[in-house]
Design a protein around this nucleic acid. Structure first.
Lengths: 122, 122
DNA sequence: CTGTATCCACAAAGATACTG
DNA sequence: CAGTATCTTTGTGGATACAG
């Protein structure tokens, strides 16, 4: 039973992390920063549909988790740069793998959905 | 501009799929079915903390997306089996990759969080 | 056994306005 | 420019009861 519990615990922990890095805004930020260092406003422009509130919250979480580094330049007007850390870069690779899967199998999923929705309903 | 829009569209589509397969219950179901075919009740027992409602909803979505196959046996009492499709199996592999990343770097993230939370607050 | 239906609570997220 | 504060709205998930 200890084995099952230990597995559950590991899964649970993994799920917590997936909940973090798996939400759409985190993915978007990581993907954007994968290309280059960006400032707050540049990120906001780059990520379609994100609100200031969500961008701030997402960046804080990613910073806290050690995936993104935030650099404040003491100038006027204020300038803050965001860049992926080394840990963030390893995640970028993994995220890209998942992205690739999603892109590769998008058609399969669309087909499956169409087939499912076209079923005769009793 | 078309290039950027096309990329945005692809990213958006990928995000939709990630939203599906990335939520914790989907991950849990796919992981459970990765080991063996299971019935509804067995899945509910296997996945700690899931409610009937969520399990049903998750299975429907996965079935619609062509990741899980649902087989009803016309017997009394009713018996319904769930198994990963071929497409589901390819996702299992990718999910495992992400899981592995999460497990591998869990300590790094915990450290980063501890360091972040220990910062002196102005 | 395998679900569906309903209700409710809480949290997440958008809009908006304001500050250092 | 780079956020914070506040309000409102939406959505997600849990509990429960019931049906085929």
């Amino acid at each position: 039973m200890q084995v099952r519990d230990a597995e559950q615990a590991r899964l649970c922990h993994a799920r917590q992390i997936l909940d973090r890095v798996g939400d759409k805004w985190s993915i978007a930020v990581i993907h954007s920063l994968g290309k280059q260092t960006l400032r707050f406003t540049e990120l906001k422009r780059d990520i379609d549909g994100i609100s200031q509130r969500m961008l701030t919250a997402t960046l804080r979480t990613l910073e806290r988790d050690g995936l993104v580094r935030r650099t404040v330049h003491p100038v006027v007007p204020p300038r803050v740069d965001y860049v992926l850390t080394e840990l963030g870069l390893t995640l970028l690779g993994t995220v890209c793998t998942l992205m690739t899967w999603a892109v590769t199998h998008a058609d399969d999923i669309d087909e499956a959905r169409a087939a499912y929705d076209a079923r005769p309903v009793p």
